[in-house]
Every structure is written in C-alpha cells, then in structure tokens.
Design a binder for these strands. Sequence first.
DNA 1: AGCACGCCGACT
DNA 2: GTCGGCGTGCTC
Length: 800
Amino acid sequence: MIAKVIVDVPTSQTDRLFDYAVPKEWENVIQPGIRVVVPFGPRKIQGFVIDLEKESTLNKIKPIEDVLDVVPVLTQELLELGEWLSEQTLSFKLSAYQLMIPAAMRTKVKKEIVLLTERQNLPASLQNYFEPGKKTLWSDVILDQKANLKLVQELVREGLLEVRYQVEEKGHKKTARYIKLADPNVQLEEIPTRAAKQREIVDFLKESIEPISVQDLLKKLQTTRQVITALVKKGYIHEFEKEVYRDPLAGVQFEQTTPLPLTEQQQQVIEPILDSLVTKQHDTFLLHGVTGSGKTEVYLQAIDKALQLGREAIVLVPEISLTPQMVQRFKGRFGSKVAVLHSGLSMGEKYDEWRKILRKEVEVVVGARSAIFAPFTNVGIIIIDEEHETSYKQEENPKYHARDVAIFRGSYHQCPVILGSATPSLESYARAKKQVYQLLPLTTRVNQRAMPAVEVVDMREELRNGNRSMFSYTLLEMLKDRIEKGEQSVLFLNRRGYSTFVMCRDCGYVATCEHCDISLTYHRTQHSLKCHYCGHEEKMPNTCESCGSDHIRFFGSGTQKVEEELTRVLPTARVIRMDIDTTRRKGSHERLLSAFGRGEADILLGTQMIAKGLDFPKITLVGVLAADSMLHIPDFRSAERTFQLMEQVSGRAGRHDLEGKVIIQSYTPDHYSIELVKSHDYEHFFKMEMSQRKVALYPPYVFMVLINISHPELTKVITVSEKIASFLKREMQESTTTILGPVASPLARIKDRYRYQCMIKYRNEPRLLETLREIQQHFIRDMNQGQLQVSIDMHPYMFT
DNA sequence: AGCACGCCGACT
DNA sequence: GTCGGCGTGCTC
C-alpha cells in the first residue's frame, strides 16, 4: 500500500503528489485527509495524505515515518475542494489545504543535534553546547559561530553526533487535572469522621455524574490541594489529565431566545429556502433585505430547520461585524451547538473551536471568511451575511472568494446557499436577475418603521457661505439638538483613500516614503511620519526638506483632528472616538461600544468599524463627514462601495422607537451613488451602475484577472510585463478578450520594488487557467533566484 | 524550503 | 594546488 502525499514545502517544484510506503501496521490507520511525517531528502517534514493506492510506479519509495492525526483532519469533500481551489486560484495545493486547518495545527520542524558519545570526546569548542539530558538546537550551535558547521559535519560523519528533525505542531491541546472516584460505590463510613473535608469530597463525587477538575472542586468546596492528595494516596480517588477547551466566551451568559413570529414577507422568503432544504436541492438565494428587515431571524429559522433534519449550518459574517451582539443572537438561539471562529480569538481558542466542529460537538459554526472550510460532513445550509463585503475575498494566496467556496460546498452537499445583503454586490444582483440565483426581497422593516430621512449637504455651498470647518451648519445644529434632547449621534469619517499627509505651504512639497511611492502619514502620538505600506518611520521635520520653509501643514482629516474640532465647537459634548488607535487593545472595541450603549457619551466618532452592527435605541442622528472620499479612488467599484457604505451607515439611525435622521456631507452631492441614498433606492442605483459598467466593460459584464509584476529594477519589471502582455495577446481570443497594459500600478513602488500590472477582461476563455499557469511556469526561474514576483489574482477586488 | 552537487575566483 | 562563493536541480 502506498500513500499519495502533498508535502509541506510551498514551491511550484513540490506542488505535486509524492509516493510513500504505508507501513503494514498502519494500513488501517492511514487514510486520506490525515497528516503524516515523511522523510523528504535529508530531512523530515509534514504532509497531507491525499489518496491511497495499491502500488507505485516508482521503485525507490521511503516509508511514512509518523502519523500526526487519529481522525482525518480533511474530509473527502475538503480534499476535493482543495484540489479545485488550487486550480481556480493558481496556487499550491499545499496552501489550499493549509487554509482548511487552524494555524495551531501547522507544524514547524525543529532541527536538533543529538550527542551519541560522551561530552569529553568532543572538541573543546563544542562541549559547552551539549548538556546531559538536554536537547541541542541546530541553530544555537551554528548561528553562534560559523566555523561550527564544518566541525559538526565532520563529527556527524564520524558518528559522534546525529542530526534529527522534530516535527512539532505550533499549538497545544490544553489539559487540566481531573478527579473521579476509584470505586463509585465507596461507603462514606470508610473514611474517618475526623477527616471531614475528605468525606465532603467523596460525598460530592458520589453525587456528581461528570468528572470534575481539581481546580473547580477546590473552588466549590473551599478546600486545599492537600486533602485531595491524601485521598489519592489512600486510593479512594483517581487523578487524571483531561483535555479541556479554551472557552473565549467563558462566563458570558446567553439569554435563550425562541423563534419570533415571522412577518408575511419573511414567511414568503423563507418558504423557498425550507423547500430546498427538505428536498435537498442546491439553490443559491440572494436575500435582498433592507436594514432592519429581519434577515437574521430568517437565517435563524432556516438553520433551525436544517438542524431538525439532522444537518449542519455554516454562517459567514464579515470580520468587523462579528461583534458580541451578533454572536449573542446565534448563541441565544442554538446555545452550545454553536462554534465561533474569528480573528479575535487566540490561536489556541481557534484550535479548540475548530476541533469541536471536527468532533461533531457543534452543529452550527459562525465565523469570518475561513469558517467556510469548517470540516462538517453533512452541511444542510450555508449563509453568507453581508455578501457584498470585500473581506470575503482573501488578498493573499490562495486568493479565493468565500462565496465561490460556499457554492462549491452547497453543490457538493446539495444544500441551499443564502447570500444576504441590504446592498448586494452588482455581480450577485445581476446573477439574481438572470435567474442564476433566486432573488428573495425583503422590502419593509420588521417594526414597520420607515427608513431614516437622508439629507445631503453640499459642502461647496457651505464653503461659498463662508463655512470653512468640517461641519456643515445643518449638521452642527442637529448635533446640538440631539445633545439637548439627550439623544445620541454617530459621526462617520471615511478615511479610506484619505490620510493625513504633510505638505509644505510654500513650495507644495509632500513628504513621501523613500521606499514606496506614497505620501507619509503623520502620527501624532509619536510625532512622526509613517509609511502605511512598508512601516518606514521618520521624525516629523520642522522645516521643509525641499525649500527650508517652516510652513509645514497637515492635510486630510483624521479622527483625532475631527475630535479636536468637535470639542472646540461643541465644548459640552461627550465624545467617544473609535479608530485603529483607540481599539488596538483587545476588548477595547467592546468596552467603548458598551460605554456608548450605556449613554456615557453623546457622540460616537469613528471610521469603517462603526458602520456595522451598531444598534442602540437612542441613536437618532448619523452624520457622514466626507461621503465622497471613497468615490475618487481609481477603482471601478468605488461608486458601488460608496453607495453600500452610505446605506450601511444610514441603517444605524432610528432603528427603534425614535425616528432617525442622516446627514451626508459631500462635494459631489449630485453623484448617483450619493443622491440615491436619499431614496434608499437600490434598484435604481443598480441600473445606473450597470450602465456604467457596460460602457466601460467591467464586471459583471466581463470577468477580470489582475497580473501584478514587481522587481527592484524598473527595467526588469517593464520587460517582464511586456512579455506577459504580448504572450496573453497571442494566446487569448482576440474577439472577446481584452488585454490591458502593461501599466504602472496605482502604487508604482512598494518597499523598493517597482510594480506594473496587466489586466485581462474576458467573457469566455476556456484556455485561460492553462495559459496563466504557463506564465507562472515560465518565470519560475526569475522568481526563485531573482527578485521577480508575478502574482495572479482571479476576479480581483484590490487594484493597488 | 533546504540541501547537495558542481563549477569558477583568491588564498594558506 | 584547496576553500568557499552561490547557480542548478532534486526531494517519493
């Protein structure tokens, strides 16, 4: 029996199956999806068993050395999915499989030197590195003193030393000491009356069914370790190690909720979903529901049905909206059947949540993008909430989109996939219109409240009227009004595309990074200038580097600056600021939000992170300070993003009894992406935007591929880019496919590397993946030893 | 990725 | 003559 193995070496040369002999004793143990340790060249590494076969075509086959899992960590489905994913994203199979297991299970290989003789037999210079009973790390010996390498090599040859490779997982299972009665029928009378505490413990253990950890017992019975030790010594109880889960939500109480009665509309949209659940049909639904229309309740009841049918559910939520409020709703309905996976958890916590899924201890997983790979085997429903969110696309290799993976899995399990959004992506909505997805509209809010009134303020007009501050008269008046009434306001500053750069007022010189073609950002806390791309940091200059003038000013407005301005114009206002700076510490996000929820501030000022999930009854005003900052980013989706964001932010106001109002400040108030927020008219926006996309030939009218080429030398980048572009032009169908470029990337240099890009727009190109593989293959050499990077992004979202 | 093999320059 | 630089190619 031989095993086909993908080894843990992420290079294109090793991106294929390797054959290993399965030792006789392990023939029933080793199955596809299990991780093993295999010899690879002179070392040992981890590998995934993909397949088993009777025999190999090769004659020199090494045996599998060790087995890392008892149960396969990748199901047959996930093995197939990984194969498909690596094909679709042009990445290594290994990288696809590594996506599917928690980081804690990835292994590192330790290289150690073992002493096979007495220390005295070694040359004096090496003796100090070896201590009896201790392991010696290769790196300790060699990195210390370069000359050691030769010495060690010789000693290995002579048989005095040996080099060993130790494959270790990064994470560990957490264990705790547990105790149980040695004999469950033990008589209490056997224990002397004077040993009151011992009796108490035995009595307690007799009553309890589950074993209890030593820690918990000590706390519960208010006693000490000695008592237990005594009982163990006498043989009444046994002590043992038991694996425990790290519970990120320990101590949090979840209020049990029951299904709410559905509105007529909700009833209408849930029926087709339940239908395809029951008949085991793979349908993709686009649930288009305005904010507050009760999408989540539809999800919950659909999941409930799936669980009743004995099947599992995967729910994806964008990282930033994976707030305690959201988790609460799922935990509240399904209790301990839910596993939660997001980046806020420690590596160990993620590991534990993941193993709950593998062991079938949960039936629902709620998580960010990578939760789509949850190792369930009987998936009944997959839900992607806020499906338009760009965070569902991974920007690193493998550059996959969770939506595509969801549909793969939905088709595998013949189950429904629900994409939910108030502002669907153009791609999804277009597919729904073409009946590829089934459109399910929810047009009214559950509580029958109207959507908040939106007023767009023309900031050019304000300027003409002599208002040079960042707050319009209207917004300022409204803010004052809310403070007087004791109601709350949210101020939203979209900083993407904007930053606080530094410019000389005399000569116009802008401080830029010396390694990247981008302006430096001023950081007030350290009074320094930082580059957002490479992390380069320099002191804030006092005079202009170019002309020596001391008229240096900060431009752009960060939240800090808005906050200062706010306290100047509204001195009585209590403001909570939420941005990367104030939420860096773990848990501070929740702390600030709950403080605001308790009414400890009048105004919540923040960036993107407050656009989602915020739901407090006293918020009656939402202000957007610079609506068009996103609109001018050179990206064909900028209008779509602007509309989505404005709608999202508007949804924060007046969700409960009090009526809400939204003020949007803009320098381009007539642009349809801003104008149409007033009427909350998605359909209209869709039509407008689609006609733009049609003219300029952008998705959903075409598919796109972005090829990014970078190298420290500009000439090299240009020659490679041109080669790629002309190759593509030769290979692709001229009539329906367009090759754009090569052109310099919007960010033409990052970390001293010049960047060029080529773009492919196509409708139907059967040979596309094959051709792209050829390009990858062709430049392998330059990529391995040279500094060349060629990255290919199918269906890109980021064009920098 | 690592590591060995192998072919050219500067040294005890 | 050798030591060691890193280009090339292989790992079941």
